[in-house]
């Protein structure tokens, strides 16, 4: 009796684990499919431009405003702690490095996943539920090439741009709080920042991170939409799963990428 219950519990854990692994595998397989059928998106680039508008341009406001607030908070908190050590001028370094290395790519990707990723999933899911995708197949149009690939590439292209805008806006926010509001020395703020932030190791690595996050979020969002059960409930569940799994994927990938970037590849 007890043994049976324990076995059932273990089986449940195994089942859940397998489901998660299967889901990851299916997402990667779908990503490969998308890449294979990507040629059309580049031959008809206006399709991608449309998706850059929906994913990138329409996320601009939330990215810029959040970046400004995050930078301001970093400026305040950084100044509060650093003044204990008499090095308030280093607040510029703190704000710039945290944004360029971590917060810019990560928070922008999290916002992007909830703002644009969920929209992509809902759109593709609803197309599937209303049998628009099947209709396309009837007309010998590959829905992955026509619907999925442009959305995927729109997301991948928008993500690094949004992350850089987030970082730049955050540094302006940090500058406003630290220099304009609190009165940290202007020259020391910028010069220490420039001495500490390396182009290749900090800025380029940040862009690489945001590119990887862009691929992950776009792949998950399009996959969840494409595989959503064609019901109202199914689409709503898929939208939720997009936000949850992309957020987890972003944070897990961030740990892996950061470890490699800081500690080297060997």
């Amino acid at each position: 009796m007890v043994l049976e219950a324990t076995l059932r519990g273990i089986r449940l854990v195994g089942d859940r684990t397998l489901r998660i692994v299967e889901r990851i595998g299916a997402t990667v397989a779908f990503l490969v499919m998308t890449l294979v059928h990507s040629a059309t998106s580049f031959r008809r680039f206006d399709l991608v431009i449309r998706e850059i508008f929906f994913a990138g341009v329409q996320s601009l406001i939330i990215i810029l405003v959040s970046g400004l607030f995050v930078g301001m908070v970093l400026g305040l908190q950084g100044h509060e702690t650093l003044q204990n050590y008499g090095s308030e001028q280093s607040v510029g370094v703190l704000v710039a490095l945290s944004l360029v290395r971590e917060l810019g790519p990560v928070v922008a990707a999290l916002l992007f996943a909830s703002r644009a990723g969920s929209a992509i999933t809902a759109e593709i899911g609803l197309m599937k539920a209303t049998e628009q995708l099947s209709a396309m197949e009837m007309m010998a149009i590959n829905p992955i090439a026509r619907v999925v690939a442009p959305r995927f590439w729109g997301g991948v292209i928008s993500m690094p741009l949004l992350a850089m805008l987030f970082s730049a806006m955050g540094i302006i926010g940090g500058f406003l709080v630290a220099v304009v509001l609190i009165g940290v020395d202007d020259g020391a703020f910028w010069s220490q920042m420039q001495a500490a932030v390396d182009f290749r190791h900090d800025i380029v690595n940040g862009i690489i991170k945001s590119l990887v996050f862009g691929v992950a979020v776009s792949a998950i969002a399009t996959f969840e939409g494409y595989e959503a059960p064609p019901t109202a409930e199914g689409v709503s569940g898929a939208t939720t799963r997009t936000v949850v799994s992309s957020s987890l994927a972003i944070l897990a990938l961030d740990l892996v990428l950061t470890a490699f970037m800081l500690k080297g590849w060997n």
Binding site: I49, I52, F53, G56, V57, L60, A96, V100, S158, P160, L161, L162, M164, L165, S167, A168, M169, I171, W190, M193, Q194, A195, V197, D198, F199, D202, I203, I207
Partner: peptide, 21 residues
């Protein structure tokens, strides 16, 4: 989209030259 991409590149230049070394 043009405005968005140009803004993105402008942010990159700001990061590269004003923030970075």
């Amino acid at each position: 989209v043009g405005v968005f991409v140009l803004l993105g590149f402008f942010a990159f230049l700001v990061l590269a030259f004003k923030v970075g070394n």
